[in-house]
Design a protein around this nucleic acid. Structure first.
Lengths: 147, 147
DNA sequence: CAGTATCCCTCAAGATACTG
DNA sequence: CAGTATCTTGAGGGATACTG
């Protein structure tokens, strides 16, 4: 990334910080594939179609940022990439992004992949709600400085 | 963007489609600022710190993709940028990204901005749940082809 | 299989000057 | 104020060959 988090206009914005980590063409797709079971370098390479050198670089950065770790595979002695708790914590981001894409980036009737739970039921729309369960929108929320 | 949606390895993945629209350094931050009340070109420019030509380009693309529209300001005759329903629908994405950033991209005690509702209460963690309310994770979900 | 090493090229991004 | 026009730079990305 050309700019680092410290150079944002608002250095205290968590959105900017997050974008700084995963806001490029590939990182989120690598995380997506990791959630979908990808573990080996070649596996990631084939699923994403990313160039090998770029993939090596992105994996390195994701490891540096703590989203992915390289661990010994239980079976062989080959090391595999697995999501850390930090990486897994991107799950709601991936899901909301996916749901937005489903709703607004496909023509009617176009083939798409969907997310289902253990029983094969489609995952319902994720919504932001207040403590009392009331749905929130950008109109009913605002940003406040903290700390 | 160098590649368009049609060139992804998996052209049916909504995550890839979404990344294709907003997966660059600035688009999400522009949407964030629009949600936070930005309306004029200069306003966006100052909030983000983006170069003017790049801002013009991004706004154009966001308008092309239907996330933002230029409408007559009620008061004067100046046109302002406003989020469309499609753009507003990115709210859960921005919120989950923000919450991830809050949790994993700040040192303890570091100043950060937080999202609050109309009463000033901090917006609770957004979670993906099944139809019965059970929380879902990447381990309990999978991707299925559809259509 | 899992990367590293090169080479190359495009375009994103920045800076600045200019115009309606 | 709201952009457009130009110029320059460098990083992001791709292709391919190579190595432990």
């Amino acid at each position: 990334m050309a700019r680092d988090a410290a150079s944002w206009t608002d250095p205290n914005c968590p959105v900017a910080r997050a974008v700084d980590v995963i806001g490029d063409r590939w990182s989120l797709l690598i995380v997506r594939d990791a959630m979908d079971g990808a573990r080996s370098f070649t596996d990631f390479q084939q699923r994403t179609g990313i160039a090998r050198n770029i993939l090596a670089d992105r994996l390195r950065k994701l490891v540096d940022h703590g989203l992915i770790a390289q661990v010994e595979a239980p079976s062989g002695k080959r090391r595999v990439y697995t999501l850390t708790a930090v990486g897994k914590d991107l799950f709601p981001v991936i899901v909301t992004l996916r749901q937005w894409g489903e709703r607004h980036a496909f023509e009617a009737g176009e083939t798409r992949s969907v997310l289902v739970d253990e029983h094969g039921a489609v995952v319902p729309q994720v919504v932001a709600v207040a403590a009392d369960g009331r749905p929130l929108t950008s109109e009913t929320t605002s940003v406040r400085k903290f700390g």
